[in-house]
Protein backbone atom coordinates (compact mmCIF):
# COMPACT_ATOMS: atom_id res chain seq x y z
CA UNK A 1 0.00 0.00 0.00
CA UNK A 2 2.78 2.30 1.05
CA UNK A 3 4.76 1.52 -2.09
CA UNK A 4 1.75 2.06 -4.32
CA UNK A 5 1.29 5.54 -2.91
CA UNK A 6 5.01 6.20 -3.31
CA UNK A 7 4.85 5.13 -6.98
CA UNK A 8 1.96 7.45 -7.68
CA UNK A 9 3.65 10.35 -5.93
CA UNK A 10 7.07 9.86 -7.55
CA UNK A 11 5.65 9.34 -11.05
CA UNK A 12 3.39 12.37 -10.71
CA UNK A 13 6.20 14.56 -9.47
CA UNK A 14 8.61 13.40 -12.20
CA UNK A 15 5.94 13.81 -14.86
CA UNK A 16 5.02 17.22 -13.53
CA UNK A 17 8.61 18.40 -13.45
CA UNK A 18 9.26 17.28 -17.02
CA UNK A 19 5.97 18.72 -18.15
CA UNK A 20 6.77 22.08 -16.61
CA UNK A 21 10.30 22.07 -17.99
CA UNK A 22 9.00 21.29 -21.47
CA UNK A 23 6.29 23.93 -21.24
CA UNK A 24 8.85 26.48 -20.08
CA UNK A 25 11.29 25.45 -22.80
CA UNK A 26 8.55 25.75 -25.38
CA UNK A 27 8.15 29.40 -24.37
CA UNK A 28 11.84 30.19 -24.11
CA UNK A 29 12.93 28.36 -27.23
CA UNK A 30 9.93 29.13 -29.38
CA UNK A 31 10.75 30.05 -32.97
CA UNK A 32 8.74 32.48 -34.97
CA UNK A 33 7.58 30.88 -38.17
CA UNK A 34 6.76 33.06 -41.11
CA UNK A 35 2.94 33.39 -40.86
CA UNK A 36 2.77 33.43 -44.64
CA UNK A 37 3.60 29.71 -44.63
CA UNK A 38 0.36 28.98 -42.79
CA UNK A 39 -1.64 31.24 -45.08
CA UNK A 40 -0.23 29.52 -48.15
CA UNK A 41 -0.87 26.11 -46.61
CA UNK A 42 -4.50 27.09 -45.98
CA UNK A 43 -4.88 27.93 -49.65
CA UNK A 44 -3.53 24.57 -50.87
CA UNK A 45 -6.04 21.72 -51.37
CA UNK A 46 -4.50 19.56 -48.62
CA UNK A 47 -4.86 16.26 -50.41
CA UNK A 48 -1.28 15.59 -49.33
CA UNK A 49 -0.83 13.90 -52.69
CA UNK A 50 2.80 14.89 -53.16
CA UNK A 51 2.34 15.68 -56.84
CA UNK A 52 4.36 18.87 -56.32
CA UNK A 53 7.38 16.80 -55.35
CA UNK A 54 7.31 17.73 -51.67
CA UNK A 55 6.37 15.54 -48.72
CA UNK A 56 3.00 17.23 -48.29
CA UNK A 57 1.15 20.52 -48.54
CA UNK A 58 2.95 21.95 -45.47
CA UNK A 59 6.36 21.09 -46.90
CA UNK A 60 5.48 22.69 -50.21
CA UNK A 61 4.12 25.81 -48.51
CA UNK A 62 7.37 26.14 -46.56
CA UNK A 63 9.47 25.68 -49.68
CA UNK A 64 7.46 28.05 -51.85
CA UNK A 65 7.55 30.80 -49.24
CA UNK A 66 11.20 30.42 -48.22
CA UNK A 67 12.88 29.53 -51.48
CA UNK A 68 12.61 32.11 -54.27
CA UNK A 69 13.42 29.44 -56.86
CA UNK A 70 10.42 27.23 -56.09
CA UNK A 71 7.65 27.81 -58.60
CA UNK A 72 4.21 28.75 -57.22
CA UNK A 73 2.47 26.57 -59.80
CA UNK A 74 3.67 23.15 -58.69
CA UNK A 75 0.33 22.24 -57.11
CA UNK A 76 -1.27 20.13 -59.81
CA UNK A 77 -4.58 19.42 -58.02
CA UNK A 78 -5.03 23.13 -57.35
CA UNK A 79 -4.72 23.96 -61.04
CA UNK A 80 -4.68 27.57 -62.19
CA UNK A 81 -6.76 29.27 -59.45
CA UNK A 82 -4.53 27.96 -56.65
CA UNK A 83 -1.36 28.68 -58.61
CA UNK A 84 -2.52 32.26 -59.09
CA UNK A 85 -3.35 32.60 -55.40
CA UNK A 86 -0.01 31.17 -54.30
CA UNK A 87 1.79 33.36 -56.81
CA UNK A 88 -0.07 36.38 -55.44
CA UNK A 89 0.79 35.51 -51.85
CA UNK A 90 4.45 34.85 -52.53
CA UNK A 91 4.92 37.57 -55.11
CA UNK A 92 6.02 35.21 -57.85
CA UNK A 93 4.82 34.79 -61.41
CA UNK A 94 2.60 31.78 -62.01
CA UNK A 95 3.43 29.60 -64.96
CA UNK A 96 0.65 28.16 -67.05
CA UNK A 97 -0.56 24.74 -65.89
CA UNK A 98 -2.33 22.45 -68.20
CA UNK A 99 -5.32 20.85 -66.48
CA UNK A 100 -5.17 17.09 -66.77
CA UNK A 101 -7.28 14.12 -65.74
CA UNK A 102 -6.50 10.47 -65.32
CA UNK A 103 -7.33 8.27 -68.29
CA UNK A 104 -7.74 4.53 -67.82
CA UNK A 105 -6.18 2.86 -70.84
CA UNK A 106 -7.87 -0.51 -70.66
CA UNK A 107 -11.35 -1.43 -71.77
CA UNK A 108 -11.17 -5.17 -71.27
CA UNK A 109 -13.85 -5.83 -68.62
CA UNK A 110 -12.54 -8.04 -65.85
CA UNK A 111 -15.61 -10.29 -65.87
CA UNK A 112 -15.35 -10.93 -69.61
CA UNK A 113 -11.59 -11.10 -69.90
CA UNK A 114 -9.64 -14.25 -70.55
CA UNK A 115 -7.89 -15.48 -67.41
CA UNK A 116 -4.43 -17.02 -67.21
CA UNK A 117 -5.14 -18.49 -63.77
CA UNK A 118 -7.35 -18.01 -60.77
CA UNK A 119 -5.76 -15.52 -58.41
CA UNK A 120 -6.42 -16.09 -54.72
CA UNK A 121 -4.46 -13.75 -52.50
CA UNK A 122 -4.13 -10.21 -51.28
CA UNK A 123 -6.66 -7.98 -53.04
CA UNK A 124 -4.04 -5.70 -54.46
CA UNK A 125 -2.87 -5.15 -58.04
CA UNK A 126 0.78 -4.86 -57.11
CA UNK A 127 0.69 -8.16 -55.22
CA UNK A 128 -1.24 -9.85 -58.03
CA UNK A 129 1.08 -8.52 -60.73
CA UNK A 130 4.01 -10.19 -58.98
CA UNK A 131 2.52 -13.60 -59.73
CA UNK A 132 3.21 -14.19 -63.42
CA UNK A 133 2.22 -10.63 -64.25
CA UNK A 134 -1.28 -10.98 -62.86
CA UNK A 135 -4.23 -13.27 -63.58
CA UNK A 136 -5.45 -11.42 -66.66
CA UNK A 137 -4.89 -12.96 -70.07
CA UNK A 138 -3.60 -9.68 -71.47
CA UNK A 139 -0.33 -8.93 -69.73
CA UNK A 140 -0.74 -5.18 -70.35
CA UNK A 141 -4.30 -4.83 -69.09
CA UNK A 142 -6.00 -3.71 -65.91
CA UNK A 143 -5.96 -6.32 -63.14
CA UNK A 144 -8.94 -4.65 -61.52
CA UNK A 145 -8.18 -5.12 -57.84
CA UNK A 146 -8.57 -1.41 -57.17
CA UNK A 147 -5.14 -0.36 -55.94
CA UNK A 148 -5.49 2.90 -57.89
CA UNK A 149 -8.92 3.65 -56.44
CA UNK A 150 -7.61 3.17 -52.91
CA UNK A 151 -4.63 5.41 -53.58
CA UNK A 152 -6.68 8.36 -54.83
CA UNK A 153 -6.47 11.16 -52.25
CA UNK A 154 -9.46 12.95 -53.79
CA UNK A 155 -11.91 10.04 -53.99
CA UNK A 156 -12.13 10.49 -57.75
CA UNK A 157 -11.56 6.88 -58.74
CA UNK A 158 -13.90 4.00 -58.08
CA UNK A 159 -14.23 0.52 -59.46
CA UNK A 160 -17.00 0.23 -62.04
CA UNK A 161 -19.41 -2.67 -62.55
CA UNK A 162 -17.21 -4.25 -65.20
CA UNK A 163 -14.31 -4.36 -62.73
CA UNK A 164 -12.38 -1.51 -64.32
CA UNK A 165 -11.67 1.77 -62.54
CA UNK A 166 -13.82 4.74 -63.48
CA UNK A 167 -12.53 8.30 -63.26
CA UNK A 168 -14.80 10.97 -61.87
CA UNK A 169 -13.62 13.81 -64.07
CA UNK A 170 -15.16 16.43 -61.82
CA UNK A 171 -13.32 15.23 -58.76
CA UNK A 172 -10.07 14.23 -60.49
CA UNK A 173 -7.43 16.85 -59.94
CA UNK A 174 -4.81 15.29 -62.16
CA UNK A 175 -2.29 14.74 -59.38
CA UNK A 176 -1.12 11.54 -61.06
CA UNK A 177 -0.87 9.42 -57.93
CA UNK A 178 -2.88 6.57 -59.46
CA UNK A 179 -0.74 6.68 -62.56
CA UNK A 180 2.36 6.12 -60.43
CA UNK A 181 0.94 3.30 -58.35
CA UNK A 182 -0.57 1.19 -61.14
CA UNK A 183 1.78 -1.78 -61.68
CA UNK A 184 0.61 -2.10 -65.29
CA UNK A 185 1.01 1.61 -66.04
CA UNK A 186 -2.37 1.75 -67.69
CA UNK A 187 -3.36 5.09 -66.19
CA UNK A 188 -2.18 8.04 -68.23
CA UNK A 189 -2.70 11.74 -67.64
CA UNK A 190 -4.59 13.32 -70.53
CA UNK A 191 -5.46 16.99 -70.99
CA UNK A 192 -9.06 17.85 -70.16
CA UNK A 193 -11.23 17.91 -73.29
CA UNK A 194 -9.39 15.30 -75.37
CA UNK A 195 -11.75 14.19 -78.12
CA UNK A 196 -10.58 10.63 -78.51
CA UNK A 197 -8.39 8.23 -76.62
CA UNK A 198 -6.78 4.89 -77.34
CA UNK A 199 -8.26 2.93 -74.48
CA UNK A 200 -5.70 0.15 -74.60
CA UNK A 201 -2.18 -0.44 -73.40
CA UNK A 202 -1.31 -3.57 -75.35
CA UNK A 203 2.04 -3.59 -77.07
CA UNK A 204 1.28 -6.85 -78.84
CA UNK A 205 0.69 -6.88 -82.57
CA UNK A 206 -2.27 -8.22 -84.52
CA UNK A 207 -3.41 -11.65 -83.57
CA UNK A 208 -1.38 -11.84 -80.37
CA UNK A 209 -3.29 -8.86 -79.01
CA UNK A 210 -6.66 -9.95 -80.35
CA UNK A 211 -6.38 -13.44 -78.93
CA UNK A 212 -6.53 -12.17 -75.35
CA UNK A 213 -8.83 -9.19 -75.82
CA UNK A 214 -11.51 -8.29 -78.35
CA UNK A 215 -11.12 -4.54 -77.93
CA UNK A 216 -7.33 -4.39 -78.02
CA UNK A 217 -5.28 -2.02 -80.15
CA UNK A 218 -3.67 -4.40 -82.60
CA UNK A 219 -1.18 -1.92 -83.97
CA UNK A 220 -2.61 -1.98 -87.49
CA UNK A 221 -2.05 1.73 -88.04
CA UNK A 222 -5.36 2.41 -89.83
CA UNK A 223 -6.12 5.25 -87.44
CA UNK A 224 -2.74 6.86 -88.06
CA UNK A 225 -3.29 6.70 -91.81
CA UNK A 226 -6.82 8.09 -91.57
CA UNK A 227 -5.90 11.08 -89.43
CA UNK A 228 -5.56 14.18 -91.63
CA UNK A 229 -3.53 16.05 -88.98
CA UNK A 230 -0.97 13.34 -88.17
CA UNK A 231 -2.09 13.37 -84.56
CA UNK A 232 -1.81 9.61 -84.16
CA UNK A 233 1.45 7.73 -84.13
CA UNK A 234 2.30 4.09 -83.59
CA UNK A 235 4.72 3.29 -80.82
CA UNK A 236 5.50 -0.32 -79.95
CA UNK A 237 2.40 -1.50 -81.80
CA UNK A 238 0.23 0.87 -79.81
CA UNK A 239 -1.49 3.94 -81.22
CA UNK A 240 -0.70 7.17 -79.37
CA UNK A 241 -2.90 10.24 -79.78
CA UNK A 242 -1.29 13.65 -79.55
CA UNK A 243 -4.09 15.32 -77.60
CA UNK A 244 -2.93 18.84 -78.36
CA UNK A 245 -3.20 18.51 -82.13
CA UNK A 246 -6.45 16.65 -81.62
CA UNK A 247 -8.05 19.33 -79.44
CA UNK A 248 -6.81 22.27 -81.50
CA UNK A 249 -7.48 21.09 -85.03
CA UNK A 250 -9.84 18.18 -85.31
CA UNK A 251 -13.62 18.17 -85.07
CA UNK A 252 -14.22 15.23 -87.32
CA UNK A 253 -12.76 12.15 -85.64
CA UNK A 254 -12.35 9.82 -88.61
CA UNK A 255 -10.05 7.57 -86.63
CA UNK A 256 -12.99 6.30 -84.57
CA UNK A 257 -14.67 4.76 -87.55
CA UNK A 258 -11.49 3.25 -88.97
CA UNK A 259 -10.45 1.29 -85.90
CA UNK A 260 -11.30 -2.37 -86.56
CA UNK A 261 -11.43 -3.38 -82.90
CA UNK A 262 -12.95 -0.24 -81.38
CA UNK A 263 -9.91 0.48 -79.24
CA UNK A 264 -10.22 4.20 -79.95
CA UNK A 265 -13.19 5.68 -78.17
CA UNK A 266 -14.81 9.12 -78.19
CA UNK A 267 -14.30 10.85 -74.86
CA UNK A 268 -16.31 14.05 -75.10
CA UNK A 269 -20.00 14.57 -75.86
CA UNK A 270 -19.16 16.33 -79.16
CA UNK A 271 -16.89 13.53 -80.26
CA UNK A 272 -19.61 11.00 -79.46
CA UNK A 273 -22.11 12.93 -81.58
CA UNK A 274 -19.58 13.28 -84.40
CA UNK A 275 -18.90 9.56 -84.14
CA UNK A 276 -22.62 8.79 -84.58
CA UNK A 277 -22.78 11.08 -87.63
CA UNK A 278 -19.69 9.49 -89.17
CA UNK A 279 -21.05 6.04 -88.51
CA UNK A 280 -24.39 6.90 -90.13
CA UNK A 281 -22.65 8.41 -93.12
CA UNK A 282 -20.51 5.34 -93.49
CA UNK A 283 -23.55 3.09 -93.19
CA UNK A 284 -25.37 5.19 -95.79
CA UNK A 285 -22.43 5.05 -98.19
CA UNK A 286 -22.25 1.32 -97.75
CA UNK A 287 -25.98 0.94 -98.32
CA UNK A 288 -25.77 3.04 -101.50
CA UNK A 289 -22.89 0.97 -102.77
CA UNK A 290 -24.80 -2.21 -102.06
CA UNK A 291 -27.87 -0.77 -103.82
CA UNK A 292 -25.78 0.17 -106.87
CA UNK A 293 -24.28 -3.28 -106.98
CA UNK A 294 -27.71 -4.83 -106.74
CA UNK A 295 -28.93 -2.54 -109.55
CA UNK A 296 -25.98 -3.47 -111.73
CA UNK A 297 -26.57 -7.11 -111.02
CA UNK A 298 -30.25 -6.67 -111.96
CA UNK A 299 -29.34 -4.89 -115.22
CA UNK A 300 -26.88 -7.60 -116.13
CA UNK A 301 -29.59 -10.14 -115.74
Amino acid sequence: MNIAIMVVIVMTVIGLIFGLVLAYANKVFSIEVNPLIHIVEDVLPKGQCGACGYAGCMAYAEAVVNDPNVSPSLCIPGKKPIADLVADLTGKAAAAIEPRVAQIKCNNAISESIKKYNYIGVEDCIAASMVQGGPKGCQYGCIGLGTCARSCPFDALHMGEDGLPVVDEVKCTGCGKCSLICPKHIIGMAPIGSHVGVICNSKDKGNAAKKVCAVACIGCGLCAKSCPYDAIKLENNLAMVDDHICIEKCNNPLCLEKCPTGAILPLTEDARKAFVVIKEAAAKAKAEKDAQKAEKAEKAE
Binding site: F18, V21, L22, A25, F29, S30, I31
Partner: peptide, 12 residues
Protein backbone atom coordinates in the same frame (compact mmCIF):
# COMPACT_ATOMS: atom_id res chain seq x y z
CA UNK B 1 10.81 14.36 -22.56
CA UNK B 2 14.55 14.85 -22.71
CA UNK B 3 14.67 14.32 -26.46
CA UNK B 4 11.82 16.80 -26.86
CA UNK B 5 13.71 19.33 -24.80
CA UNK B 6 16.92 18.71 -26.72
CA UNK B 7 15.09 19.18 -29.99
CA UNK B 8 13.70 22.53 -28.88
CA UNK B 9 17.08 23.72 -27.67
CA UNK B 10 18.92 22.65 -30.82
CA UNK B 11 16.23 24.13 -33.05
CA UNK B 12 16.64 27.50 -31.38
Amino acid sequence: SFVQLLEMIIKK
